[in-house]
Design a protein around this nucleic acid. Structure first.
Lengths: 353, 353
DNA sequence: TAACATAGCGCAAACGTTTACGTTGCACTG
DNA sequence: CAGTGCAACGTAAACGTTTGCGCTATGTTA
């Protein structure tokens, strides 16, 4: 791998030039930069002035080399193309991450799936990149990369519970409780026959929300029927087809009167598929989603959902990672963020008794 | 700024240990790492074996220090909180960027708004971060930061045309043409009275799409009426209110029969506002958006839109930046990506002649 | 055979910092 | 007044690479 030719940008002013201009040693300049003691107030001011005049800014690369810390964390999304699309709140998540990082003086680099795939030993990538920690988003069940990080003792926090790993640090939405409450809401509205359009069972989101659905049914004394669980697939198109297929292959009298959808992302094509089959929402069927996407309240009809604090998700995960990076203890290594059911016009009582 | 305490991770194996194990000098090891000539085939293999055995990975920080290149580019979104939300295709954009970067062996770091704001002289931030180039997303009109980058001669490409800068490198959606064609489609369907819910006039997107709307009207011999231009604002909530306000404050006989919305993001609350006022879509009013969001075809009714290649937008911008970073010439410093009108049920003929 | 080119390799400087340690000068103690 | 302590600063090593230059051995040419 030949390194690219060096760009011929104007050379930056270095600490040496600052030192010369201020008539001190570079050690002293460094000390005022890092706010270290051992510098008289007078010289400290003089150096500061020179720094300002020369427009000096410390070279972070050099600093990292000696301090063995890049003050940078990596954000790695393990999802494939299709799955990533199912996370429209990506922007919210990133804002949460960035806000906390910026506040603590850290940066983040986004490692791409491709770069990650090329490198089977992803750990080396992380080591070579010189990042201080990793934020792992959307790890699959028994994710090999997560295992590798854990066994190496590398500081990392998963966004979403990493199923298969024990004693790992994570922060997640309380999917189980959220799904449970969503189905409870449908039951409360009078529904007895409730379907679930489920997400990928390779990820904790899909698994936990399905489980929440199941528990709510069982606890209410209702039957858990696998035939009423429809796999959404990876794209909206697949979800649309799956629901259409379900309706066509199921006798009308066996149709559910309510459906809990994995998330709002998929709820949109699900509603479309229902409407296209002549089903009225909520008259013939009630629909509730998950995530409470920003758009959901403006859909036609407005979509009931489970509010999930995505911004907090990113922020909390980052707040957990930073102590880890510094080798400090983390008070609560596992955090679940609460959810809240938001009822809207897509949910109503079932048509007949 | 005191640097954090050093993490006590197991020390990585360095080039020196590899050299010792392979019984060569570190210079030789370096040469095989960079595929430089001057190493016999036999020793080259021997070194490679040792590297593999020891699990060695070069320290990118040290490499960057001497090569004066971090092989990292910064992605900076200039938008504020509210505006960022209006870009739901952020994931698509990032994928385009990352895919190209990974292919070329680069990484990207995301600089946050906050970090940026603290540092009025944003240029220093960029210098200090040691990035090789900048991808600037959503620069405002006469953006001061873009000016600064340009005057310093720093390699950067704006995603979206940077109004106010001349001879700058950018890649953008062809907003003008896209908006023009969208309105042409409404006119083609028979509409004579067409409104526009416009985006922020602080950004080229808002300006250019408004201009496309205007030109289509003028060329068709229709009146351009500022009263029919409604400002969407920054959030969906604001857009919803603005449209409701417009309808309430306008005589019914003066209502438009078609509306071109800045983007699909805002089209959702716009449609909601119309429906809430008893307006049927498309019977009473046709609606067309922009971006062709993944969800648009599943909305109720399915939303006509202008397809915009967001993935390509990110990919092309990155493909343009990398030569710039290497000091090479860029063949086409300004690129406009074509758009395509997608008609759906939200557009139909006007009710009465 | 002498002169010379070249392939293969090592030495050491450089990249721009941080920081342990040493030195100086001065005030303060006993 | 000798001794001590400390604040203020400088010296130099270290971080892990890349790379220009020099050296040696071997092969080629005149």
């Amino acid at each position: 791998m030949a390194l690219g030719s060096k760009p011929r940008r104007p050379k930056s002013v270095t600490i040496t030039e600052v030192a010369r201009a201020a008539r001190v040693s570079i050690a002293t300049v460094s000390r005022v930069l890092t706010n270290s003691p051992g510098v008289g107030e007078e010289t400290r001011q003089r150096v500061r002035v020179v720094i300002e005049e020369l427009g000096y800014h410390p070279n972070l690369t050099a600093r990292s080399l000696v301090s063995q810390s890049t003050r940078t964390i990596a954000v790695i999304s393990m999802q494939t193309l299709g799955q990533l699309q199912t996370q429209p709140a990506l922007g919210q998540l990133f804002r949460g991450i960035e806000d906390v990082l910026a506040h603590e003086g850290y940066r983040c680099t986004v490692l791409s799936r491709d770069e990650f795939k090329q490198n089977v030993a992803g750990l080396r990538l992380v080591k070579g990149s010189g990042v201080d920690g990793v934020l792992l988003n959307g790890a699959k069940v028994n994710d090999p990369f997560a295992f590798e990080l854990a066994s190496y003792g590398f500081p990392f926090v998963t966004i979403g519970r990493a199923i298969g790993l024990v004693n790992t640090h994570y922060v997640d939405i309380d999917n189980l409780s959220g799904a449970y409450e969503a189905v409870r809401a449908l039951i409360g509205a009078g529904h007895r026959r409730i379907a679930h359009v489920c997400g990928s069972q390779q990820t904790n989101l899909g698994i936990e929300r399905l489980e929440g659905y199941r528990r709510a049914l069982i606890e209410a004394g209702l039957e858990y029927n696998e035939r009423l669980v429809i796999e959404a697939g990876m794209t909206r198109r697949e979800a649309y087809r799956a629901v259409g297929e379900f309706l066509r292959s199921t006798e009308k009298r066996l149709w559910p009167t309510g459906v809990f959808v994995f998330n709002d992302f998929f709820a949109v094509p699900v509603m479309r598929a229902l409407l296209d089959s002549g089903i009225r929402i909520p008259n013939d069927m009630s629909v509730i989603g998950f995530d409470d996407d920003d758009a959901s309240e403006y859909l036609n009809p407005p979509l009931a959902s489970v509010r999930a604090p995505i911004y907090q998700l990113g922020a909390e995960a980052t707040r957990m990672l930073l102590p880890l990076v510094r080798g400090e203890e983390v008070a609560r290594p596992q955090v679940l963020l609460p959810t809240e059911v938001v009822l809207r016009a897509s949910v109503g009582p079932p048509a007949s008794g």
